[in-house]
Design a protein around this nucleic acid. Structure first.
Lengths: 310, 310
DNA sequence: TCGATCATGCAGCTATTTTGCATGGTTCTG
DNA sequence: CAGAACCATGCAAAATAGCTGCATGATCGA
């Protein structure tokens, strides 16, 4: 869709400076040069009659006035989104560009069928899918490069209270344990995560979303995993499992290649899940294309809808 | 103050087209050429992906989409004003240009002392006063050429529910009867408007605010005035009264030149008043300069503050 | 039917916006 | 305690947008 006309682009520039902390980083995000960003912010400051940026170390810091402006900017953008939403709802037929983004598994399993469905129902709309990590998904929303994002919440992800976004639980993606064929756990009637406490574990690199996910799940189950190997892709992790180097957790949504492994659903109260959220810019939640996409995703998925407060 | 940066000026253009009904009139109000207005609106329409104007006769008409956009634009402008207000309230010292406007009597009796007071309290602020009829006052507010307007409500004035403005009763300006010296009414202990039912009246030209005011007052008092002459300025009207051509109603706020006339306060329940309203753009009511100005006006005036629901 | 009024399109000019590079300040590192 | 790296800003020049003047076509009223 459109990149928020109606609101002066100088505000977006300021928002980007705030988001990225430096003029240079904001320039990069906007595909501008630093001097253009600097000029634009200075201009906004003059028009408003206040100081917005103050030198701080070798960078800049936001003034109190800038924070006031940004807070109101959030309301302005939300109102603009509501306008687009209402226009789209009134129009006989949505048109233009609609971009979906999401983390790897969502991008491969959830977004393509949804996009295909939308393309059929709204032939005038050009659809685009971008695979991106949750943090970048939010950047894409903010910059207007994406309209709907499927994310999992992590420590780096904006909190639900962030007034720039609307985040809504969409699906709960349960985690399966993947073990080699003939593994002792395959002989149990039902497997609990705690049963795997003594196994060698294969997790993601420290800092990745997957690393946190596994660590948190194990902590919740009452043990600290014995980390034997690190693998960031399901394929690598599955291969390691097949060769007996350890075990992994994979979300149900993830499809595994054909390896001699067994996928064990986890039982019990505290069976870990990865929660999938749908995020939009504030005010866009009721946009007909957003609503149609989310409807399609949650109705066609075999996963359970997200539980409140899980 | 600033003419609403933060919000794309294309919206202001559309708003002006809506306000004035034709592209040409909007262009005039904006000091643009019609082709610039046409270009700007077309551009906005493209960015939004909707039609905004449709040919209608030899002019244009707003589409439903345009009305949607305009409704949201009101919210955007209000939010922007709240931003300026908060910035001004946070800043150590307001700066920039602040423009007061008001109808003739207000401009001569209320605005100069208020402006002078503000100039003293806020030396960084440049003050400007514009005398304008109520209808033009609202135009000035809308175009950003004025920040605070003193108006009386007339039939052409926007209703209180107009989301673009904030209107607040400020003062009730009672009307006095002006009669020649030695007139029979001067001998009554207390004069009611109905007592003047049979007198020859001098009113404003049909269509003026003053004309409506007098007519309404007389209607309310239960009679239709016998209109003998028309005069649009107090000076002219007073001169006619002095020469015995009839009687006039003047607001207490109006000062009269030295003529051989007597000014009789009207008694009774239904003593007519002219209500003075303070109008701002929506969201600007709490601006420190607005608050200071209204405070000064209502506290220094000898007139009664406006009664709720009068 | 004619003249007045209105919107729009186009060529050309003006003003704004952006870039590229240079400068000066600050932090990190060896 | 230098030197390198990083960051913001300023300035001239290039790129882009916005505006004007005029011409065209369409509609309405006399």
């Amino acid at each position: 869709m459109q990149n928020s006309c109606m609101i002066d682009s100088k505000l977006k520039v300021l928002q980007m400076v705030a988001q990225h902390g430096t003029v240079t980083a904001a320039a990069e995000a906007l595909h501008y040069t630093p001097s253009a960003v600097s000029y634009r912010v200075r201009q906004l400051a003059e028009e408003l009659g206040v100081e917005l940026l103050a030198p701080s170390g070798r960078g800049i810091a936001l003034t109190a006035a800038a924070r006031v402006v940004l807070r109101h900017a959030e309301a302005l953008y939300a109102e603009a989104e509501r306008t687009y939403t209402e226009l789209a709802a009134t129009a006989d037929e949505p048109t233009g560009l609609f971009t979906l983004c999401g983390f790897s598994t969502a991008a491969s399993r959830l977004l393509p069928p949804a996009a295909s469905d939308l393309r059929e129902r709204f032939p005038q709309v050009t659809l685009r899918v971008i695979e991106a990590e949750p943090v970048r998904c939010f950047d894409l929303l903010l910059s207007g490069d994406a309209d709907l994002a499927l994310v999992t919440n992590t420590a780096e992800t904006p909190p639900a209270s962030d007034e720039r976004f609307d985040q809504k639980p969409l699906l709960d993606d349960p985690l399966d344990l993947v073990v080699p064929e003939g593994h002792r756990l395959t002989r149990l009637p039902g497997v609990d995560l705690a049963d795997a406490a003594d196994e060698p574990w294969i997790v993601g690199s420290p800092g990745t979303t997957y690393h946190h996910l596994v660590m948190n799940a194990c902590m919740t189950a009452g043990f600290t995993p014995n980390i034997a190997h690190q693998a960031d892709e399901w394929e690598t992790g599955t291969a390691l499992v097949a060769h007996g180097f350890g075990i992994i957790l994979v979300p149900k949504l993830a499809r595994l290649q054909d390896w001699p492994v067994v996928r064990l659903p986890l039982a019990g109260e505290s069976a870990p899940v990865r929660r999938v959220l749908a995020a939009t810019r504030k005010g866009k939640r009721d946009h007909p294309l957003v609503a149609a996409a989310l409807d399609r995703i949650s109705s066609s998925s075999t996963l359970p809808p997200a539980q409140e407060g899980a």
